[in-house]
Amino acid sequence: MMDTPIPSAWAHLPFFEADWPRIAQTIAEEPRDILPPADQRFAALEALRPDQVRVVILGQDPYPTPGHAHGLAFSVEPDVRPLPRSLNNIYKEMIADIGAAPLTGDLRHWTSQGVLLLNTVLTVPAGEANGHKALGFQTLAHQVLKEVSCHPCAFVLWGKQAQALAPHIQAPKDGAQHLMIETAHPSPLSARRGFFGSRPFSTINTWLTQRGEPPIDWTHA
Rank of each mutant, 00 (worst) to 15 (best):
W110N: 05
R22P: 00
T26H: 01
D3G: 01
E46P: 00
A101R: 12
D174A: 10
T183I: 10
R22K: 01
W10H: 02
R192K: 14
R49G: 04
D33L: 06
Q143Y: 12
M2C: 02
P66T: 07
I34P: 01
T65K: 12
R41V: 04
I169Q: 15
W20G: 01
V76W: 12
T183W: 07
V80L: 11
A166M: 15
T65E: 13
L145C: 15
D19P: 03
I57W: 02
Q60E: 14
Q170L: 14
V55E: 02
V53E: 02
D33W: 00
Q161V: 15
A69I: 03
G197T: 06
A129M: 11
E30P: 03
L208H: 04
T104G: 06
A221Y: 08
F201P: 14
S112K: 12
G114P: 11
E93F: 02
A43N: 02
D217S: 14
L72N: 04
P14S: 03
F15A: 06
K146P: 07
D51A: 08
V156E: 04
P50L: 01
G59R: 01
L103T: 12
P5Q: 02
A166W: 15
P167S: 05
L107A: 11
L117E: 05
D174L: 06
T139F: 08
A28T: 01
A184H: 10
P152L: 05
E46S: 04
D39K: 03
L87C: 06
I98T: 11
T206H: 08
V56G: 07
D106P: 09
T65R: 09
G159N: 08
I98W: 04
A129K: 11
G175K: 11
G59T: 02
L145V: 12
F16Q: 02
M1P: 01
A171C: 13
A126I: 09
T104A: 10
G197V: 07
P5M: 00
G114T: 04
P64V: 01
S86N: 05
I27K: 00
H109L: 05
A221R: 13
Q113L: 10
Q210A: 10
L140M: 13
P214A: 06
M1H: 00
D217K: 09
H220Q: 10
N130D: 12
S112G: 11
H142W: 12
L107N: 11
L87F: 09
E46I: 00
S75K: 10
S86H: 08
E30C: 09
